[in-house]
Design a protein around this nucleic acid. Structure first.
Lengths: 199, 199
DNA sequence: ACTACCAGTCGTACGCCGTATAGGGATGGC
DNA sequence: GCCATCCCTATACGGCGTACGACTGGTAGT
């Protein structure tokens, strides 16, 4: 509060004319960011639409790293969230799917990209903490840890993982999990439609 | 800090003998909870194993609601996380899968249940805030909101969703999304194995 | 011209918080 | 008897969110 006021060149108490409390301000901030998320118009390709929404969500939370620390308790459900839900539901329309099914799908996908945004933020924080170490040093530290595990006969799979040097980038990981989830959803929807068409 | 000290019947500064700072204490708390999570031994059925791990994770984070507000910035990566990773990787062993593939799968699944735990906490917080309202009143308020949307010709899918009264329980939603994700992963693994076997 | 009112701001003060610093007491080894 | 080690306490500092009350400028009504 005091810092915000200072940045605005105003006394701390001036804020309380516009905002009921710090908590209130934080809620408004969360809602504002929610409003920033780009939501594509339904294109007829639900996979593409949900994927685009997921990317938009991730990108926005990446741009405002502080969001992930607030989103844990503060749920906006403000007016900025409705269009988001609306368009995701609309993307699933024309698929022979009930609104309940569409909702379940939407929830599952939201869950995924929310989780990813948070993991990502954790990773970025960890990387920032290691900012002084050069990549080669990090690699060396990990190999050392792997060797220790090997020596103590602990967690062989983790050791193998540490020794493996090549990983997907975060972007690729995001798309991999999302694609698998959408694959599973697609198969489920098709099975549902099929069972409705065939007697 | 002061409250912890009081609960321990000790002066606030006594804590600083055992702990470097509040931040340090929080990290230790996160790690301790991570250690509480039940991790099943690999049974040969990787789906069952990952599902059980997911349930254990969700349950533990549900038991310690404060976790979701800390997990946003504080990543433990302490010793209590390694067995968790180890067993999940081990569950995916014997599937003709490289360690990298197993890691990608693990990450996707973790992402899902982390996201779910956080969404769940948001929902519980919202419900707690509405604790004085009886379920029938909540239902009525939602229907009123739906009517308003209808009247203003806004968000028809959301309105339809509000009017729909029957939803999956949280447990069912958790399992639905998780099952879809595992379906997609399974199909991907099988395709990978098939393409390796056939020339 | 005078008043009433309102939006918006400010200064002061209270009670929290985390923690830096310095200083005990107990215990056990020499 | 002396010292080191462990564990704890008292005090104090600077920062926080915000309750309270007073101030200012502008607009509207009479």
């Amino acid at each position: 509060m005091r810092r915000v006021a200072r940045d605005l060149g105003v006394s701390p108490m001036a804020l309380y004319w516009h905002v009921a409390s710090k908590e209130d301000l934080l809620r408004l901030m969360v809602d504002a960011v929610e409003g920033e998320i780009e939501i594509p118009q339904p294109s007829g390709d639900w996979r593409a639409d949900l994927t685009a929404t997921a990317h938009g969500y991730r990108e926005t939370l990446l741009r405002h790293g502080w969001m992930t620390s607030l989103i844990g308790h503060r749920r906006s459900l403000g007016p900025n969230e409705l269009p988001h839900i609306e368009n995701s539901l609309a993307a699933l329309d024309h698929l022979g799917v009930t609104i309940r099914q569409a909702f379940n799908v939407l929830m599952a996908v939201e869950t995924y990209y929310l989780g990813f945004a948070i993991r990502e933020q954790q990773e970025l924080a960890a990387e920032r903490a290691n900012t002084r170490l050069r990549p080669a040093q990090v690699r060396k530290a990990i190999m050392g840890e792997a060797a220790r595990l090997r020596a103590e006969d602990l967690y062989p799979h983790v050791a193998e993982l540490f020794e493996e040097g090549q990983f997907l980038t975060r972007d690729e990981r995001f798309d991999f999990g999302l694609a698998r989830l959408l694959d599973g959803i697609q198969a489920d929807l098709q099975a549902g439609v099929a069972s409705k068409v065939e007697p």
